[in-house]
Nucleic acid binder design. Sequence first.
DNA 1: GACCAGGCATCGA
DNA 2: TCGATGCATGGT
Length: 252
Amino acid sequence: MEIDLERTLSSGQFFRWERRPKGFLIQTHGRSFVVDERLEVPLFAQRFLALDHDLPTIRESLRRDRGLRDFVDRLRGLRILRQEPWECLVAFVTSCASNIPRITRNLDALCRTFGSPLPRGGWGTPPPAALVDERALRRLGFGFRARFLVPIAREAERGALRGLERLPTCEARARLCDLPGVAEKVADCVLLFAYERLEAFPVDTWIRRAMTELYFDGRRTPDRELRACAADRWGPLAGYAQQFLYVWARSR
DNA sequence: GACCAGGCATCGA
DNA sequence: TCGATGCATGGT
């Protein structure tokens, strides 16, 4: 099975993992497991790792694009994981104007402070009911993001995420955007990384740079046009194209 | 010591 | 509808 764990885990889509002497400890869905290249993991972990995505076919499709063809084959084994929606939402609200090392640190502090220890090591993401104290979150280093997390947790407790998996993508996106501190970018991250909407195309600073360079001759272009361009070129695989672009843009 | 970071909300033009 | 700005804090 084609998967590059290092490449996938460090690609900025998921933050609750650690290197171990042999493999990686992954903390998600209220459980944890260690995985190495043998991929001998429980069923829920196989699902999390999205081992059912047909990577060779996805690459073959994206390789036809003139912008992507120079690097898709160099990014073998890069997968889009199937995360737990609440965890993913917390992570990408935290990601607002931040960076991967800091997001990782913030989330780890959050889980150690308000989460529960997991049987096989690590800490679980605290449930919405545990996030009630904005000042405590600020002390953990969340900065202005703390202002959004408490109301979001309250909405989640009221069932704001319930049933989203059954809605069409645009309706699910609208629901997510109703949450404070959630707009198009964060919503698309949650749709792509937790709700299996592989057509979602989150536009962040790196994607903006890559897209304007590859397809707009370096001209500054509204995000709306970048998303339209992505939908046009890659349709149901735009999310995977996004992940290739992100890793490529950051590796230069 | 600026400048920017996997943004969002708000405000004026 | 678009561009500028504040929001916290840490890294370069």
